[in-house]
Design a protein around this nucleic acid. Structure first.
Lengths: 184, 184
DNA sequence: AGCCACTATATCGCGCCGATACATCGAGTG
DNA sequence: CACTCGATGTATCGGCGCGATATAGTGGCT
């Protein structure tokens, strides 16, 4: 997930870890935040895998003086990195419909192919509907055994599931309308 | 978190890993699910720490007999385990107001002291309010730069934050009413 | 001068996940 | 009767991401 997000952000411009983490926090920050303890190791990993490359001369003392800052590793995308991002954009597997993954993928939705967008949206809807039905069943069956707090939690969950399903329906309808508009 | 949940569930009756995971999935399952890859190692850890103990093969047990003398590790709480659970019940730290922790703690709310319940609820409210304000700001500032999908996601997040704050307010009001009722 | 907040990188332990493997049992299907 | 399928049950492995922590220069406020 972090890999996907980093690769996506680096499409705009080369960046260093701190900035990357900040941008991450801003754009998709309300749904998913990544810590420095995730960002820096991931950057190393991506570099080792050849998906990103450290811009030369950025970490030397000489350059630091010019910035007036501490050692600063700026990374840029490689050709392989771009290719990898393209692959990840095409993914519509189960991890794209759960809470963590869905928000991140949506952040790059305008760059993902229309059919993949559709499959992600529909997968997410199935997910949320399952959750909704599970909560409905729990609430119906509870009545006696479950304590007040759990019931309240289930009620909140049920309402938010219903709301998200409605939200997804609107998005899906919009996607369909757009496709109809393009093809005939 | 899993430690807390397992200790809490074992208060009802001795259980084995599979059942524990199932109960976990049912009661707080819609908000947090734990995998077997978490449950079994955690059980081992808790056993090593002396918080739970493996029940010796109770041959009179109906279930066990029917099942044959298969490898079925049933764990029960120790005195230290109960003590530990009591400590965790008293915790109202930051981890109890984020998404993962809050749901789990709420599942054991009827067993947590009233003042701790209050601090958790208020902490959670502060959390959600921050998120809500962040989303409000993002939506206000966006307008141009942010693409449609991100904006939609922010809109959904904002609405669900508002809803949860209202829900928390009701719970808090109820708690206060209960305390007034008890103290005069 | 003292203090605090922000920028910036890095590492460590560990909680938890998903995949996978293995084995038994009951029920339904051909 | 054999076959398969799904639920029950335990276990391990690699790997991701988190929170805490260390280090350090910069800039502003008092």
């Amino acid at each position: 997930m972090l890999e996907f997000a980093i690769l996506g952000l680096l499409h705009e411009a080369p960046m260093h870890g701190y900035e990357l983490r900040k941008r991450l926090h801003d754009t998709l920050g309300m749904f998913r935040t990544f810590s420095y303890g995730s960002v820096y190791p991931t950057l190393r990993r991506l570099q080792r895998a050849g998906l990103i490359a450290e811009e030369p001369g950025t970490a030397t003392d000489h350059e630091n003086r010019a910035w007036g800052r501490k050692a600063r590793r700026v990374y840029k995308l490689t050709a392989e990195g771009k290719e990898r991002f393209g692959e990840l954009l095409g993914d519509a597997g189960p991890q794209t419909w759960d809470d963590e993954g869905f928000g991140v993928h949506l952040a790059f939705f305008s760059r993902t192919p229309a059919d993949v967008r559709m499959r992600i949206l529909e997968g997410r809807r199935r997910r949320v509907e399952e959750r909704r039905e599970g909560l409905r069943a729990a609430l119906a069956r509870a009545e006696e055994r479950i304590d007040r707090y759990t019931r309240e939690l289930h009620r909140l969950g049920l309402e938010s599931s219903e709301r998200e399903v409605r939200w997804l329906n609107e998005l899906i309808a919009h996607e369909q309308a757009e496709q109809r508009g393009q093809h005939g």
